[in-house]
Structure formats: C-alpha cells, structure tokens
Design a protein around this nucleic acid. Structure first.
Lengths: 108, 108
DNA sequence: TTCACTACTTTGTATTGCAAGGTACTAAAA
DNA sequence: TTTTAGTACCTTGCAATACAAAGTAGTGAA
C-alpha cells in the first residue's frame, strides 16, 4: 500500500488548475500562492512552484511584473493572461467532467 | 497554452483510485479495465496499465489469478485485496477532500 | 561586517504515463 | 505444415514533472 503517494498524485493532477484559478482572482507572488493553497489544504512547495510558474509563463497563460519589497528582495507578481483565462474556462469544464467520470466509476 | 497536457495530468491523478474502484466491484483483466475506463470517458492504455497493476500487486493491494481463454492466451484476472479495500476507503475520503479543496479555490 | 530574513533560481533524483516493439498462445486459412 | 490473424502479457526508452536541497542575492538590524 502506498496511500500518501496516491493521494499526492491526485493533488498534483489539479495543481495547475488551482494556480490558474488563484491567479485569475488577483496577482500573487510565490509565497502568496503557497499560503492560499495551504488554506485550501493543498500543500505545494517552492521547488515545485518556480518551474511551474515559468512553464505557464512560457505557455503564455501567465505574465508577471516586478515589485519592490520593503522587507527583502523584489517580488515577482504573477497574473493570468486572456489566454490563461480561456484555458481556465476549459479546465473548469474538464474538472467537472472528471468528477462525473470518477463518479460514474465509484458508483457502479 | 497546453490544455491537453493539463487535462492529462488531472486524469493521471485519479488513475489508481479508479482502477482500485473498478477492481473492488469484480475481477477484471487488462482489456476489461481499459473498456470500463473508456465507458467512463477515461482513456488508459496497455503500456500504462501493466506496470501499474504490477506495482499495485507488489504493494499488496491487488492480487490475480490466471484463467484460460478460448480465444487466445490465458488472462490475468486482477482483484482487490482486503488491504486494497482499506486503501480504497481512504482514497474515497481523499477524493472528496480534494473536491472540497478545489472547490474552495475556484469559488473565491 | 556579520547575521537574519526574504525571495528567486537551479540541480539532481525518483516517479510514472505512454509509445513502440517484443513474446507467446490459439485457431483458422492457405 | 506453414502462414496469418487475433488476443494477451511484458519490456524498453523517453519525456514530463514534483520535490528536496543547495545556491544566489537583496534588505535591514545587531
């Protein structure tokens, strides 16, 4: 048995979807995102997030701006692009379809 | 944008959960599983399934028996073990928690 | 100038889904 | 008998990616 592993797989599956969703509400930098995910009981760490955000930026679904901070180095604030919004809309559909699919399996 | 990729990630996340769920209902061999997943609109292929079933067997959550076939080589029929049932129960909880988590994020 | 804190970045590893190709069994066709 | 078709199981190699861990660099206080 490897419960934690399988649970982690589930969590990973919705990672991008959740991050796009968070950034569709308001700008955020990495620590903000980690905290918001944590509030929703979804643990995610720096080493995961930086490459992921970069990937999403390269895909054109996110963009960022630098902002000075009073307590340390400047921060990269990410926000969603119109293309990202479109993708989020489609992922919302996919997420609901996935729930329906899983539901149809577990209620045989 | 890389929608198909992200959708695939979501699907992967629930793969083990769905397979355990299917095998908790009745024995099945690989083609059965592929077909049942397809009915639920979840595509999965041989190359994914064989290593996965083996992994789950090694974890003690699945077991199998051979059965002769009239139309070809013998088939490996998999079914869930008591340990697998226990895991499935926990995954069911995790799945519902994940839905709640994602829900709390997308309805900010 | 040293330390603590914060933030961004990179490297290395392990997992794993999947395409593609391989082996082997049965039975029917040539 | 040999070939072909169909079915089923298995393996190899690759690419994606989450994550731990270590690195770089900015600010301000001790």
């Amino acid at each position: 048995m490897n419960l934690e592993n399988t649970k982690a797989q589930m969590r990973k599956g919705v990672l991008e979807f959740c991050i796009l969703s968070i950034l569709s509400e308001e700008e955020a930098y990495v620590s903000d995102i980690i905290n918001k995910m944590k509030e929703a009981k979804l643990i995610v760490v720096e080493g995961t997030l930086y490459p992921l955000l970069n990937r999403l930026k390269n895909d054109g679904v996110l963009e960022y701006r630098w902002e000075e901070s009073k307590s340390g180095p400047p921060r990269k604030y990410y926000k969603i692009t119109p293309l990202g919004k479109a993708m989020l809309d489609e992922l919302m559909v996919s997420w609901n379809e996935l729930i329906a699919s899983v539901n149809s399996i577990i209620t045989i």
